[in-house]
Each structure stands twice: as C-alpha cells, then as structure tokens.
C-alpha cells in the first residue's frame, strides 16, 4: 500500500467514522443501553447475536480489521511526524492546541489496553470466569447479571469509567477534526461543526459511563432470582 502522508490522515479519519458507526450499529452503545430495560432485552439480544454467527463473526472480523488498520495508520503517521520534528524546542508554548489533540497517541494506547481487558472481561470471561457462567431463568447466558455484578465492584467500575472518559477525550478531537480533514468545514461553519464533534463525543461518553454509575448507585440491580455467586 503506497500512501503519502496526507492520504494517511484521510484514511485514518475515514476509519474512525467506520469504527464508530459499526460499533454503534452492530454491537455496542445502543444495545448496551438496554440494560436500563431489565434483563430480558439484553439477554435476548445476546442470544440473538450468538444464534446468528454470520452477523456476529462478520461484525467481529470487520471491527478487528478496521481497528488494526486504524492502529497501523496512526503509528505510521506518528512515526513520520516524529521524523519531521526530531528535535524539540527548549521552550515550547502549545498555543491553541488542546490536551485531547496533543495526546491522541497516548490516549489511543491506553484505550487499546482497555479494549483487551474489556474483551477478556466480558467476551472471553477470563478475568471473572464465575460471572461468565451465569444462566438466566430462560436458560440463556445471563449478560445482564454479569454486567451488574461486575460493575458492583468499584475497582472494575472505576477502570471502565476512566477508560470511557479517556475514549471521550480521544473522540472529542477525532469527531471535531474529521470534518476539517474531509474539507467539509468553512470559516463560517467551523465553530458549530467543531461543537457538533464535541457533542457526539460527549453523548457517547455520558451514555457509556452512565451504566457503571447507575449500577454503583444501585439504580440498576440484579433480578430477584439471581444471587451473587
């Protein structure tokens, strides 16, 4: 693949769109918020996913490929940018830039570590195997109770909340920046398009962190027939 630097920025930005839209559409935020509707919808959704391996594995492989490509392009871009400025200033004023924009690589690496933990936790059941064995009254994998019991542990919740805030920071730059990369902004529209990006990042972050917070506060609890193992 022969990409020049400018193309890499474009490609990386494009992949962000695809990652987020796939994530929202197939596997994540939207279905996860069903936790507020009690065990039935979430467990039924999990059962549906497991029973349609084509959809499940299609989404998984698609996400993995896009995630990998995003990582590869980002590392490549970082490498080239380091080469363009090998020596730093003795005194530097990061005028106009934001914390989010300057720390995309660091926040990205921590998010990658989080994703690996997240998969080990909920998908593979490595970190809490007992929770992964739970079965609800209809004989289905009890995702709802697994989530509730996991987040009742303040350390697990804190890890998720921290990771989601960091993801929000990462997305705040990404979602505001992408319009500029695709040349959609003009001098008049840049401010509100920028705010739109921040809005998208904020909504996603608030939606995500609301789950562990609600569980910690006891607003979402276990169904009566399940007891903690």
């Amino acid at each position: 693949m022969n990409l020049n630097r400018t193309n890499i920025v474009l490609a990386a930005a494009l992949l962000i769109v695809v990652i987020s839209s796939l994530f929202i559409q197939t596997d994540h935020s939207r279905p996860n918020l069903q936790i507020y509707l009690g065990p039935e919808p979430l467990n039924a959704y999990a059962k549906f996913l497991k029973s349609t391996p084509l959809v499940l594995w299609g989404a998984r492989f698609g996400l993995l490929a896009i995630f990998g490509l995003h990582l590869l392009l980002a590392v490549n871009l970082k490498r080239q940018n380091r080469r363009a400025r090998p020596q730093n200033y003795v005194v530097n004023d990061p005028v106009e830039t934001t914390l989010a924009s300057r720390t995309m690589m660091s926040s990205g690496i921590v998010i990658l570590a989080f994703v690996i933990y997240h998969l080990a936790h909920f998908t593979l059941g490595v970190t809490n195997p007992a929770l992964h064995e739970l079965v609800d009254s209809a004989g289905r994998h009890d995702v709802y109770s697994m989530v509730v019991l996991s987040f009742q542990n303040p350390y697990v919740s804190a890890t998720y909340i921290f990771a989601m805030l960091l993801l929000g920071l990462h997305l705040s730059h990404a979602a505001a920046s992408i319009w500029q990369t695709f040349g959609i902004t003009s001098s008049r529209s840049r401010t509100w398009i920028h705010n739109l990006g921040w809005g998208i990042a904020a909504i996603l972050t608030l939606g995500n962190i609301s789950i562990p917070i609600s569980i910690l506060l006891g607003l979402v609890g276990l169904p009566e027939e399940v007891t903690a193992p």
Binding site: T6, N81, E96, T97, S101, H173, Q180, G183, T185, R190
Partner: peptide, 25 residues
C-alpha cells in the same frame, strides 16, 4: 519531509498574516 496535519490549529494561531484554518479544509 514535512509532517502530516492533525488539526491542532497552532499554525493559524501564530501566523503573522492570520491565514485561517478554513484554507486547510
């Protein structure tokens, strides 16, 4: 060997002629 643009905005902020970021778009 110039680097890639990551939409930081420092360029326009220090530009003596105040060239705006809309030109990058």
């Amino acid at each position: 060997m110039f680097g890639g643009c990551t939409n930081q905005g420092a360029c326009s902020a220090v530009c003596p002629k105040e060239i705006g970021l809309e030109w990058i778009a």
